[in-house]
Simulated scan of single mutants.
Amino acid sequence: MSIFKPRRKMVVNREVQYDVLMYVGVFIVALFIVQVFTAYLFLDQVQRVVGTMSALEFIARYKISFLVYQIIPVSFSLIVGVYIFNRLTSRIAGPLFNMRRILQKARNGELETAEIKLRENDYFQEEINDINVILKRKSD
């Protein structure tokens, strides 16, 4: 018996998985760029006085501006990232929620004509269309 089982390579829905990876990658790159830009602004501000003070004086004098240069852009990036990921995950969770709700109602016999409706930009369009065909056959 082996300790590690070989991992299966499985892509369930290329559109969903690759979009999520792309958005995560873009978010990480954007956060890195914001960090580099703010560090450059901070270094440009203190470059003139670095040689004239000790490290303790430097930290005591510029810790607030360094924190401001870091906290504001990173907070803005995180807020934008949360908004984007919320929109992205609603395109995933919405269809799954609707599918589960309609399938439960169809199972309980509460719907005569069960059809799962999706928004235009939701993921899983093909899969839901296949399920709708099956539901339509069952109701006929």
Rank of each mutant, 00 (worst) to 15 (best):
G109N: 08
Q70R: 09
G109T: 08
V68T: 13
G109W: 04
E126C: 01
S77F: 09
L78P: 00
S54Q: 03
E120I: 06
A60G: 08
R48P: 01
T52N: 07
L103K: 02
I92L: 07
G94A: 10
I59T: 11
A114G: 04
R91E: 09
I84F: 11
Y62T: 06
L67Y: 11
E57L: 06
S77V: 13
I79N: 01
T113I: 10
I64C: 00
G109C: 08
R61G: 01
S77R: 06
Q70L: 05
V80A: 14
P95A: 07
N98P: 00
P95C: 03
N121C: 04
Q45H: 07
M99L: 15
E110M: 12
R87C: 10
Y69F: 15
V74L: 13
L78F: 15
F42C: 07
S77G: 15
M53G: 01
N98Q: 10
E110F: 13
N121V: 10
I72W: 04
K117Y: 05
Y40G: 03
I131W: 09
V49E: 13
K117W: 02
L111D: 00
L96H: 05
N121R: 07
L41E: 10
I92T: 09
R119N: 15
I102H: 01
L78G: 08
I84S: 07
K63Q: 13
N121M: 13
K63F: 08
V50W: 10
S75K: 01
I84E: 12
Y40P: 00
I116K: 03
F124G: 04
Y69A: 06
V50I: 15
A55Q: 12
R87S: 06
P73S: 06
Q47K: 12
I128P: 00
I59C: 01
G94N: 09
G94D: 12
V74G: 00
A55M: 10
D122R: 01
V49F: 13
A114E: 04
R48W: 09
L96V: 12
T113V: 07
K63P: 01
Q70C: 00
Y62G: 02
G94R: 07
S90D: 09
E127Y: 11
R87L: 12
